[in-house]
């Protein structure tokens, strides 16, 4: 006691604790390394690996090649280098997955917390959620893309326009599950005694939500988020497949997957490469989410 009162400890930041718990989770570290190297590869890979320029005649001769030193992942049906296309595709797919997931999670959590905390908003917001759930997703996306693609493309260019539109469209149609999960969680949390204690202190609703409710809905949100990344990548590929996503010559993992599908029996590696990339991304994001959820919970930390 005496030595403690002479040098009382300062309230420390929890970041170090969170990291040390996170780093004990092997799967999470593996996920972080895999996702990090994937992101690094798609960011700087296209500058390091520049395929030789081929004439049309050469390209057609070299189509459907297997993996070789010249083409590490082979070539596609038009003689294009698969590695280069995979790297370019990864940029778009990862960006779409992460950004669309972020939009969906932020929006879903926002709606869920409002609906769960404020009883008056509950019914209208949940009926809105039901409405979105009831809408047939693909037709809705098709209509959205059809109506707005040209207008947005005119404003910020075809590629960035397509990206914005797709990310927005996917985000706006996949927040409902999160909203429902969060609402349910908030309904139970707001009856906890520590929320009552905060109210008896005179804390305003925004403080109660930020300090007591939001940190405690992290786990379900994290699970929803990790699943959301995979879903967003797949939805993007569906859109591209239907011809309403990115332009056909613009590679994404989903696009490559669908292109390879026709040749799957003859050249299975054409499907394996993008499939592997998508699976690795989803798996590593899942593990990272798992580790992060544990690291953010002080009850699990330090065990």
């Amino acid at each position: 006691m005496t030595d403690a009162s002479s040098t009382p400890p300062k309230p420390a930041s929890q970041l170090r604790d969170i990291w040390s718990q996170f780093s004990t989770h092997k799967g999470a570290l593996f996920g972080l390394i895999v996702l990090g190297s994937l992101i690094l590869a798609v960011l700087i890979g296209p500058y390091l690996w520049v395929p030789e320029k081929l004439t049309v005649a050469e390209a057609i001769k070299l189509k459907n090649q297997g993996p070789s030193l010249r083409f590490p992942l082979g070539t596609d049906q038009l003689g294009r280098d698969m590695l280069y296309r995979m790297l370019l595709a990864g940029r778009v797919s990862l960006a779409v997955g992460l950004v669309a997931m972020t939009i969906a999670i932020v929006f879903g959590t926002f709606i869920g917390i409002l609906a769960g905390y404020f009883r008056r908003l509950d019914s209208p917001l949940m009926r809105l959620t039901d409405m979105f759930l009831a809408l047939p997703l693909i037709p809705l996306l098709l209509v959205m893309v059809m109506l707005f693609r040209d207008r947005i493309a005119g404003m910020i260019g075809p590629e960035l326009g397509a990206f914005t539109l797709i990310v927005f469209a996917i985000g706006i149609t996949s927040w409902m599950a999160t909203a429902r999960i969060v609402r349910g969680e908030v309904l139970t949390l707001k009856e906890r005694e520590y929320v009552l204690a905060a109210r008896s202190i005179g804390a305003r609703p925004n403080r109660i939500i930020l300090r007591h409710i939001l940190p405690n809905v992290v786990s379900p949100v994290m699970v929803a988020a990790t699943l959301g990344v995979a879903e967003a990548i797949i939805t993007e590929s569906v859109l591209s497949f239907l011809g309403l996503g990115f332009p056909p010559d613009f590679p994404t993992w989903g696009r490559l997957l669908f292109d390879g599908l026709q040749y799957m029996q003859v050249y299975p590696e054409r499907v394996i490469w993008p499939g592997l990339a998508i699976s690795l991304t989803v798996l590593s994001v899942n593990y990272i989410g798992d580790g992060l959820r544990d690291a953010l919970d002080p009850r699990i930390r330090g065990r």
Partner: peptide
């Protein structure tokens, strides 16, 4: 147990 937020120091 219930009246203290488990995520706060």
């Amino acid at each position: 147990q219930a009246s203290l937020n488990p995520r706060m120091t």
